[in-house]
Structure formats: C-alpha cells, structure tokens
Amino acid sequence: MSNAASTTRKPAARAARPKGDPGHSGQRNTALAWLTVPALFFFLAFAVVPLAGVLVLSFASWDGIGAIGSAGLGNWFSVLADPGLYNALGLTFLIMIASWLVQTPISLLLGVFTAGSQRYRAALAVLYFLPLLLSSAAVAIAFKALLDPNFGLATGLGLPFLAQDWLGVPHLALGLVIFVIAWQFVPFHTLIYQGGVRQIPRSLYEAAEIDGAGTIKQFFHITLPQLKYTIITSSTLMVVGSLTYFDLIFVLTGGGPGNSTRILALDMYLRGFRANLMGPASVIAVILVLIGLALALFLQRLGGKDKQGSQLEGM
C-alpha cells in the first residue's frame, strides 16, 4: 500500500502547474484514489492473498488442522506422477468440450427463438428460465430423485430405457453430468443470445427479405455473423465456468462411480478436505488457476481487444 500511496502523490506534484484541466487535479485524484481503498482491501485480502497463498501452500505439507511444514517440490512431484491428475484433467476437458458442443447450439437456437416476437415464444421463455432460479444443489437433488428407476421418470413416462443405473455406471454418470449441466446452464446462455439477437439491426433482415433470402439463409448470413461477439462471450463464460462445476457434480455423483466424474475442482476438494492433503490439493488449485487464465486469455484474443473484460468472468 505504501507503494500505492506514492504513485498517487505523483500527479499531485504535477497539479502545481497552473490551470490545466482543473477537473482532474492531483488533489481530486488522491481523493478518488481513496475511494478504491475499501474494494481494494477486500480484494487483496480475500482474493489476491489467497491466490498467492495457494502457490505457497503447493510447496507445503498440511493436514488442514495441525502445523504447516515445508514439502519442497514433493507435492508437485507426487501430483504430477499421479495418474489421478491426468484422469481429472482429461475429464475436465472432456466435460468442458462436451458441454460447449451441447450447450452452444441449443442456447443459440433458443436465443433466436425467444427473441422472436410471437407471444407464445415469450410465454415459453418465461418457463425456459426457471432453472436459473435453482441452486446447483437443488438441481442435483432433483435429478437424483427423477432418475430413480422405479419411482422416477422412467416409470412416469413409461420409457424403460430411462431406467438405468445412471449413477452407477461410469459412462452413464458422465453423460448424465453433461446433460444436467446443460439443463442448468442453457437458460443462462439462452438469455445472453436473446440479448445479442435483439441488438441485431432489423434493417438487415428487411434488406435480406427484399433480396428474397429465406429464414435459413437469413440465419446463416445475418444472425450468425452478427452474433460473433455474443458467441465469444457465451463461450468464454461457458468454458471458464466449466472449471467450477464443482457443486453440481459434488452433490450429483460425488465424483463417482469410481473416479469417473472427478473433475479437477472436485479432485482438489477431495484431496484437500477429505484426504487432508492440503499440499497436493493446492497443486491442483494452481493448475486450475493456470488453465483458467490460459483459457480466458486465449478466448479473449479470439474476440479481439476491444471488448476486453466484458467477456471475462471467472466465477
């Protein structure tokens, strides 16, 4: 903070110069700088310090209760040599990519659909957004009940193929996780696409109609290109967000059966708070941060620099 104070004082010295831009005099800037202090304090204390802390703890040995010792590079060696890490990494990317492939077309089409002016579409949209109100815990619990082979959907709809041991067979559990994630998050992305579609100038469609372009042509030649930034925004949120599907998977499958749905965030939690190995868990956390940063920067590059920030959201 002392450093920060000195940087704010610099423009104050410059303010001694006569007149020039009285609205941004040094005194004002110093006063304004003080306004950021509360936010800065919280952010430094509970986001930046922990971020540094996670790096430090990745070189420590701690069981979560006792004293903290040094582990040198031991945690890193043991985690990097652990096939569990690669399983978790692979699953994280698999769920990320599958989620993107499933959610993007559906949300895009639903976004276009709900942006239409027909009244029935508006009425449907009201219901489409219901999953947004539910917590991940609630969604996971609801689906667990729903998938009961005897008293759930399979019996209700009379569809025997739904009566599977969804949580007991690895590839079924994985598919289920991807489906439930889509169920929970498609509405959010639909909302984003709906907003994007509503910003497309109507005149483009009118011109296309005069040229005789049909609905499908209009979709591919106007809607889709015009949604470029919306697609990047939504994809960034989806991809970076997929690193943190922790709560849903934790309640739904707990990472099982076996380790078949144990994504990185869950792996971190289970190593840290169940196996009491905070050091190795911190290694996973560091990897998680690095992946998040790399993905955000990559996707931001795709979108160009002009929309910086608005596409990034890490929670």
């Binding site: 986001a47 703890l57 690193l243 943190t244 971190m268 708070f273 998680l288 941060v289 890490g314 929670m315």
Partner: peptide, 18 residues
C-alpha cells in the same frame, strides 16, 4: 480485470486457512 479471469474457487484452501 485480471480477477475476472481467475477461477476463484481454486483459492478455497488458503481462504480456509485464513
């Protein structure tokens, strides 16, 4: 802005310690 890109769940262990 940097804070937007970081999956903050990853900081849970140091937060627990703090």
């Amino acid at each position: 802005l940097m804070g937007l890109a970081i999956p903050l769940q990853a900081t849970i262990i140091p937060i627990y310690l703090m």
